[in-house]
Design a protein around this nucleic acid. Structure first.
Lengths: 234, 234
DNA sequence: CAGACTTCGTGTCATCCTGACTTTTACCCC
DNA sequence: GGGGTAAAAGTCAGGATGACACGAAGTCTG
């Protein structure tokens, strides 16, 4: 039996939009510059380094190819169908990541790296369309039951901002009152005591994520290095 | 960068016990016959064949090393810490499987394959203790919200048998009446019309799994659209 | 065959959770 | 000071869940 090639790829999510209104879930793709699928859009990825674990490899490949810094990183699935690459056999261990909405500028100014709306993707290389579909399902599912919009927001935020993140990802309107009730009851979020100024109405309370409370459905290994809060993040 | 070795291993679960009473969650382990960790118990596993996909490799390795036939098989996680093996670097793609409680006889009559209680495991090779712990967490978690005891039972079964499976896995007593109500309402199970004879009391209705209804949280390769799940808050 | 015994299966009720909706509060702007 | 706006709190009905009671349908025993 010949040893297959091993690759580590990542589906990166961010919210693009005009300042917390009309936000769209988006992801960066890279154009392949070699055969097979030369010229086709694909997920960022690369090989596994000798001294890296899988999550480190995912983060490094992500940074190297897009210039982005992940705020949340989690393993998605290992894909290994024999025919998923026409040439060598490749087993891809795929991660998914969240980056902040302000990170678009950080993306390499390169025509070979572009952002696409999650609902309007181009034709993708290999089985990457299936992978993205599954990552989207996982993101929405996790947001539903973990009650945490990991990594999309700044260190402090209002509940309205948090709600709009949920609405953009889930593509569904949420009742502000009920949202407040469930999120506050969950304990995932704590008020900072400060208020957001500069609005033309009653200034809302600012909140931050409750770092004391662990995540639901954790990875078996602690990937919490990338999870430390956006403000303190490496 | 040198290509790491790729292995496919499986955590196999079954319920052992005196005929649906006093059941214990158990798993078979194999004794390693070569270095490293020679003589230590480990998860069954092996290499990936040239023409196999990952799930096929997991099933084949499982059969080859234990003689068991899985009734349910799902990918668990890919483990790739650089130091998880003292010699070559090994990336393990781990599956978890369920086999029926009548399969113990099928296990190879080999002192190098033995069943252990999930609560009373020996020292395991590599990081397999961590892997088993995570697989246990996943099994219990999945049983909680999918309300489906995949693969532990015969094709037809009574609701009391199904409930005892849940009780053994979750290590918690469940109310028979409430269990009946929720399971019947879920539509995961349908009555066959026949009854179980040979009891010393009122003969219970037999049921079978509703194959028409898909699984929750499917693998990406069997993903179905139109999955509905409960919302955060509306 | 009568009655005890066992588990199956159904029913009831209080409580909690959720979604839909209303009301009050606090600020900005003119 | 009044109107506009969104924050924040409150109200209410319906559905799901847990605790528990009770009748139903068999076997077993004297």
């Amino acid at each position: 039996m010949t040893q297959p090639d091993l690759a580590v790829s990542t589906v990166i999510f961010a919210l693009r939009g005009t300042s917390s209104e009309n936000m769209v879930l988006s992801l960066p793709l890279v154009r392949r510059i070699r055969s097979p699928f030369e010229g086709t859009w694909a997920l960022p990825g690369g090989p596994l380094g000798d001294e890296e674990d899988l999550a480190q490899a995912a983060g490094r490949n992500l940074r190297d190819t897009t210039g982005l810094e992940p705020r949340y990183l989690e393993q998605l699935y290992a894909f290994g169908q024999p025919d998923r690459s026409p040439d060598n056999r490749v087993v891809s261990i795929v991660y998914w990541a969240l980056v902040g909405g302000d990170e678009f500028a950080a993306t390499f100014d390169d025509e070979n790296v572009q952002w696409f709306d999650a609902d309007d993707l181009p034709t993708l290389a290999f089985d990457h369309a299936l992978i993205v579909e599954y990552a989207l399902w996982r993101l929405r599912n996790k947001l539903e039951y973990s009650r945490l919009a990991h990594g999309f927001l700044e260190p402090t935020f209002t509940l309205a901002q948090l709600r709009k993140v949920y609405e953009a990802v889930l593509k569904r309107r949420l009742d502000p009152g009920n949202f407040r009730r469930t999120v506050e009851a969950s304990g995932q979020v704590v008020p900072t005591g400060e208020r957001l100024a500069g609005t033309n109405h009653r200034p809302p309370q600012l909140y931050r994520f409750n770092t004391a409370q662990g995540l639901i459905d954790p990875d078996p290994l602690t990937i919490r290095t990338a999870l430390t809060h956006p403000g303190v993040a490496s």
